[in-house]
Design a protein around this nucleic acid. Structure first.
Length: 979
RNA sequence: GGGCCGGUAGCUCAGGUGGUUAGAGCGCACGCCUGAUAAGCGUGAGGUCGAUGGUUCAACUCCAUCUCGGCCCA
């Protein structure tokens, strides 16, 4: 009980309304976040969101998840990717959609197979000792292990989704659906079998796709080789960095646009000068590109030579340089014209081994030869193997495939060079460094090797008369929306230029290519009449549905052909599908088979991935759905950049500039990472560093404190207290205007995936409009006015409306903190979780541009006043602004009128203020950018109110409360009467 | 080497179709408050808009070249 007779200042403290809340100033995020996730689990939040959205008839919004590869823990890039998706999904949920999200994983493929092989090897079992089914089971277990790890990591990031029912490309239903989709492509007639030189890794004994190789510098031999021109006394000279391909040579290419000359060697450098004997001899005659003749002669240690005549290589026939050594090389070597030949390096002639080079293959075919003419002398281990090959070459390896020197060059190159020397056709040799393809797993060099493979043709029309896949895909891209828009170019040009899609892999861990090849070498989908082929397909699908893909691997062709065709001579394809085909099919088994979108015509609203996926998932999904349904599987493609350090350099373990998500979670809390994700421009590269994270922690503090202040100010708030907007003071109506303005901006920004705009709008709104202006001004009313006072009730009403909106506007970005605040807020009763709410209606009537313009004028004057008070402070004449009662001289009429009905002292947070129409004295304070306003800062007269700390004239005091202002006396009366 | 994209204050971002002293928030410096207190408020200092050249009366905004960085490819 207080003693009324005392006038001690502290006495009024308990008559003040000070902010009171359990919401701590500091979030303690690292510890709190996992608890919130548990809570959401327990309440089945994701299911509740679906149920409630459906109950209110919400339109679906589908972001289809691109699957990460299940072979390691998550890193910052994958975390950011998932958080971004979560922002999109949560944002649209808040906008009122039924925004479901099914996360997925990519499970098949080489990297996992490689790891599992390693595991077997460490137990002393080589790849040929492990049965296929056991091997695949081990791969399955390996993927499952990492899926669990990654799932926990993503969940820790606050990503909401159907974590109990994710899609996995290795699920039996997914595998069955992938087979179904593949057979559908096969039936469309776009499938072709070809023998093409493709990238082949001898170490892994597999074909590799572009996405599976990386380019590194490598030291390689370089040789200049003479090909004798038949019927002449001179040779054409070629240059190559792959001596091992010489035994497979079948032609030499030239370019008709290059000028060639016949050159004769006159003198060569001596053995004494060189330390070895040059291969060239005086009198030798070579044909060379004129632009390169000197360089070639240099390499050949020729010290003097002359140009004999112009020549035209067209129509010549050459002999193989090993012609003398074996019957295998007695064949003619034709000259082929090709524009891949240039005269800026080499000799102007290109040795052509169609089995071992893309260009070689193309020029070979273009000159009327066929794929069956191609000499294939290298087996899957990268070893020479051919019955007619000279004994010296049999069994030599190109790349070492095992042991310590794995990946280094094998014996083939040396032996070829030796044989060329023996044959007298090696002109020169050396060593150079080239950038060449290496397997991304083993890091060993890859070779190009012709192998029978399956392709999806880009330019072949479908059997049902549909357009070629390339045309369908390009058309589909035109119909697709792109964020950012300029990236449409990128995927379009990639699709326009890409070669046929190589989909076969000679591996174990994958979805089988379920084709039966007829005795005539055709897949059953073409070899059989359509109805019979469909019957076979049905048997295949039924078997896989019943027993999984093992049903294919273990079956004999008869199982599928009996009664339809004579199984004799038919072969089962044992290759598996490229993993990109699997992932390109995710829309089918995740969205279509689950009934989320229409089987035939449905599209996901958004695919969102990093820019690398223009070549990857965006494209594989596009091609797959165009081949099967003639349209893109998505309406919009959203692309994000990559994470780089504070200098803009990419992250790498060797540079030591990586940031681990777990470390961020432990040190700052994942919400800080979410704040960072939201405030960055994700369409470009995203910079991160410790300092950048600290900056975001500061932003978090500001947002959290704003929520905290609102919660404190609204302690005990009741709807009954609420005041109608039209009855509120001008300042409150200005806040409502800002609220309505923000509402439009926030909705628009979330809809456009522009989270950084949400962030900057929120930070500005909280930091400036609320904290620096509104809260600061209304502190006095909030703390000191009587509970029944209209101004105070208006303040609390507005604060309640502000809090209600801030919580949901921020919820997608800060799901933890907003939930924490929501549950102790005045609207906690509205739902069990803030995430079950949507953005509330914000009356357009709150928008009042004229009113806002008026308040801009008031704030303009306010800035001059605060400036003037700052000078007083510096001069030590005042401390708190309440010690002042300025005279404000205003010449511009509209500025004075803006204050009509308002209390300038309240707005300036001074004990008094007088607005005077006039110029003021020269001594008055003014700002250059606000002419016509001058402030004479006067000290407030009177005594300091013991309650509100405002200075006032004691003569005006209520006799019962002489030490406080009449306003405070009234408030104290009301409070004490009630208690 | 090729294709696409980007380079605005210390940091994160704004800056329709070229046009007055290039903005915000944060950070920083200084000061105030001590009834949002490991908070709050105020004032201030920071950028010739990656570089160079050009078009124009006028360019951060258009063009060219270069440079740095990213993704993809060779």
């Amino acid at each position: 009980m207080t003693d009324d007779t005392k006038t001690n200042a502290n006495d009024y403290r308990d008559t003040l309304f000070l902010p009171k809340t359990e919401f701590p100033m500091r979030g303690g995020l690292p510890k709190a976040e996992p608890k919130w996730i548990e809570r959401w689990d327990e309440m089945r939040l994701y299911d509740r969101m679906r149920e409630e959205a459906k109950a209110r008839g919400a339109k679906p919004f589908i972001l289809h998840d691109g699957p990460p590869y299940a072979n390691g823990p998550i890193h910052l890039g994958t975390a950011m990717n998932k958080i971004l998706k979560d922002l999109v999904v949560r944002g649209h949920q808040m906008l009122g959609y039924d925004a479901s999200y099914i996360p997925g994983w990519d499970c098949h493929g080489l990297p996992i197979e490689w790891k599992v092989e390693e595991e077997f090897r460490s137990k002393g079992r080589g790849k040929d000792d492990v049965p296929g089914d056991e091997f695949r089971a081990a791969c399955r277990a390996y993927a499952a292990k990492w899926i669990e790890v990654q799932k926990q990591g993503f969940r820790r990031c606050g990503v909401e989704g159907d974590w109990d029912n994710p899609y996995l490309t290795m699920n039996f239903e997914s595998e069955a659906a992938t087979v179904r989709e593949f057979l559908s492509v096969a039936m469309s007639g776009r499938l072709v079998r070809g023998s093409k030189p493709i990238m082949w890794s001898p170490v892994e004994r597999t074909a590799l796709a572009e996405a599976e190789v990386e380019y590194h510098d490598r030291k390689v031999p370089v040789i200049w080789v003479k090909f004798p021109v038949q019927g002449e006394d001179f040779s054409v000279v070629i240059w190559t960095t792959t001596p091992w391909t010489i035994p497979a040579n079948q032609a030499v290419s030239f370019n008709p646009d290059i000028s060639y000359g016949l050159y004769e060697v006159e003198t060569v450098m001596s053995e004494e000068e060189l330390g070895f004997a040059p291969f060239a001899a005086p009198g030798d005659k070579y044909v060379l590109a004129d632009a390169l003749a000197e360089a070639v002669m240099d390499s050949a240690k020729v010290s003097g030579f002359k140009r004999v005549s112009d020549v035209d290589p067209k129509g010549w026939t050459l002999s193989h340089p090993l012609n003398e050594l074996s019957d295998f090389y007695k064949h003619d070597v034709p000259m082929l014209a090709g524009d891949h030949v240039t005269d800026d390096a080499g000799t102007g002639f290109v040795h052509t081994a169609p089995a071992h080079g893309e260009d070689d293959f193309l020029v070979w075919i273009a000159n009327g030869h066929t794929a069956s003419d191609i000499r294939d002398i290298v087996n899957e281990d990268g070893v020479y193997e051919h019955p007619e090959l000279p004994e010296a070459l049999q069994g030599l390896d190109i790349i070492r495939t095992s042991g310590k020197k794995r990946g280094e060059q094998g014996k083939a190159n040396q032996e070829v060079m030796r044989l060329l020397t023996e044959a007298g056709n090696l002109l020169s040799r050396g060593v150079t460094v080239i950038r060449d393809a290496h397997s991304w797993r083993s890091k060993a060099p890859v070779i190009r090797r012709a192998t029978p493979q399956w392709f999806i043709a880009m330019d072949k029309p479908g059997t049902n008369g549909s357009a070629p896949l390339r045309d369908l895909a390009l058309k589909a891209l035109e119909d697709t929306g792109f964020v950012p828009p300029q990236l449409r170019n990128r995927i379009t040009s990639m699709v326009a230029d890409r070669p046929d899609w190589l989909i076969s892999r000679q591996r174990n861990w994958g979805v089988p290519i379920t084709l039966l090849v007829s005795p005539g070498g055709e897949p059953h989908t073409y070899a059989l009449p359509e109805d019979k082929a469909l019957e076979v397909n049905k048997r295949i699908l039924d078997a896989i549905a019943a027993e999984g893909v093992e049903a294919w691997f273990s079956a004999e062709p008869a199982k599928f052909l009996d009664g339809i065709a004579d199984p004799a001579g038919w072969e089962k394809v044992t290759d598996v599908l490229d993993v990109w085909f699997d992932s390109g099919t995710t829309h089918a088994f995740t969205l279509r088979d689950r009934g989320i979108i229409d089987e035939k015509t449905g599209q996901a609203d958004v695919y969102l991935e990093g820019s690398d996926q223009h070549r990857g998932w965006f494209q594989s999904s596009l091609l797959e759905n165009c081949a099967t349904r003639s349209m893109a599987p998505y309406k919009q493609v959203v692309t994000h950049g990559f994470i780089v350090d504070s200098e803009g350099k990419k992250m790498s373990k060797s540079l030591g500039n990586t940031v681990e998500p777990q470390k961020v979670a432990d040190q700052f809390g994942i919400e800080i990472l979410r704040l960072w994700t939201a405030s960055s421009d994700f369409t470009e590269d995203l910079r991160i560093s410790d300092d950048i994270l600290k900056t975001n922690a500061e932003s978090y503090r500001r947002l959290r404190n704003t929520l905290r202040y609102l919660l404190g100010a609204l302690d005990g708030y009741d709807e009954a207290e609420a005041v109608d907007a039209k009855d509120m003071p001008g300042l409150e109506r200005w806040v409502l205007h800002r609220l309505a303005e923000s509402d439009a901006l926030i909705r628009k920004s979330y809809a456009a995936f522009d989270f950084k705009r949400v962030m900057s709008a929120m930070l500005n709104f909280c930091g400036v409009d609320l904290s620096a202006i509104y809260f600061d001004i209304r502190k006095d009313s909030l703390y000191c006015d009587a509970p029944s006072d209209l101004r105070r009730r208006s303040t609390r009403t507005v604060m309640a409306l502000v809090l209600e909106r801030l919580l949901v506007w921020l919820a997608p970005i800060m799901p933890f903190t907003t939930e924490e605040a929501f549950l102790i807020s005045h609207i906690a009763g509205k739902a069990d979780s803030v995430h079950l709410l949507t953005f509330p209606e914000t009356p357009e009537s709150w928008l009042d541009a004229a009113h806002a313009a008026r308040w801009e004028k008031i704030f303009k004057v306010r800035r001059v006043v605060t400036g003037a008070l700052e000078v007083e402070r510096r001069e030590k004449r005042i401390g708190a602004s309440l010690e002042a009662a300025p005279e404000v001289y205003i010449q511009e009429k509209s500025l004075i009128e803006a204050f009509e009905g308002e209390s300038p002292a309240d707005i300036f947070i001074t004990s008094g203020a007088e607005l005077i129409d006039g110029a003021g004295t020269l001594a008055a304070y003014h700002l250059d950018d606000t002419p016509g306003v001058a402030v004479l800062p006067k000290k407030a007269d009177g005594i300091k109110c013991a309650r509100s700390w405002k200075y006032f004239d004691p003569k005006t005091a209520d006799p019962a409360y002489p030490d406080i202002t009449p306003r405070d006396a009234e408030a104290v009366r009301e409070i004490r009467e009630k208690s």
